[in-house]
């Protein structure tokens, strides 16, 4: 069954001193995917700026703007409507043996290579590889990875930073969705499963009524290629994502999907105030 969601995502920066100019990229527009249809979207910025849109290498819709007047607040609002249904895979599954061929590894090399964010200690990568070696089903192998993440990482904010790598998160044993995703991606890649990072929103209410608003959250989860791409959410231990998940961007790691990135000259900013309001519209 399909439903429609409205998402209002606001980000407010306050600066302790004037900002003279700033240059920014926003990745906050939901994608079209096999289970998600983007009905409408808009991005508004205050102070007013002219917005420039383009689609990046990963197919994410990017909004760029620069500001040249003095300001000490910056507000970004992304409003979108999407139609969602639970992903219905075709059920194609490769055998682990089929995934070690040179052609396969080459075709997916982008999602098998380690990046700075997805680096993990060699011992952990090797141990994970050994522990799945006897399993014949790719899904069983992925389950081992998900169990490993669950056993070794607990959800707690304020410990890791936006720049923390999978290795660092594993080192402290705590992290947020970004860290869960990076660790899961690192492990999946170490057992030869192509994996990518997904950013988006998670609707917190499993049974929303039409017209009902909830405070949603920005979220990050993972897709693995097993013959087709399947989504899973290591932070919540969810094996298969559903229509509660709104996809915005996909990439190799956080760096490819950063929702907001900017360079500016001027005062120091305090941490942004972010709110995500999600409403079921149909």
């Amino acid at each position: 069954m399909k439903w429609r969601l409205e998402i209002i995502h606001t980000t407010k920066y306050t600066y302790d001193d004037d900002v003279f100019s700033s240059y920014n990229e926003v990745r906050m527009t939901p994608k079209n995917t096999s289970n998600q249809l983007l009905l409408s979207s808009s991005i508004a910025v205050s102070p007013r700026a002219s917005l420039y849109n383009y689609s990046d290498y990963f197919g994410t819709s990017v909004t760029y703007f620069d500001l040249h007047r003095r300001h000490n607040n910056l507000d970004i609002t992304s409003l979108s409507h999407v139609e969602l249904e639970d992903p219905r895979g075709r059920g194609v599954r490769l055998t682990p043996a089929a995934m070690i061929g040179d052609d396969f590894r080459d075709a997916f090399s982008e999602y098998l290579a380690t990046t700075t964010y997805t680096e993990i200690p060699k011992e952990i990568a090797e141990a994970t590889y050994d522990s799945v070696a006897s399993l014949d089903l790719i899904e069983d192998r992925i389950a081992v990875v998900m169990d490993f993440v669950k056993a070794n990482l607990a959800y707690r904010s304020g410990i890791t930073k936006v720049s923390s790598s999978a290795k660092e998160a594993l080192g402290v044993g705590f992290g947020v969705c970004q860290d869960f995703a990076h660790v899961a991606i690192a492990l999946l890649r170490s057992i030869g499963v192509p994996a990518r990072y997904v950013s988006g929103y998670l609707y917190p209410n499993t049974d929303p009524q039409i017209g009902e608003s909830s405070t949603g959250e920005s979220h990050a989860w993972v897709e693995a290629f097993v013959g087709e791409w399947i989504g899973m959410d290591p932070s919540n231990g969810v094996d298969r994502i559903n229509k509660l998940y709104v996809t915005v961007a996909k990439g190799r790691d956080y760096n490819d999907v950063t929702p907001f990135r900017g360079i500016y000259f001027g005062g120091q900013s305090s941490p942004p105030i972010v709110t995500v309001t999600m409403t079921r519209r149909a």
Binding site: D56, Y57, F58, R105, D106, S109, E110, A113
Partner: peptide, 18 residues
Amino acid sequence: IPKRVIANATQFSRPAAF
């Protein structure tokens, strides 16, 4: 050319992919 020669090149610049 294998995909990885490009995808894993340090100088392959995704921001320049237009």
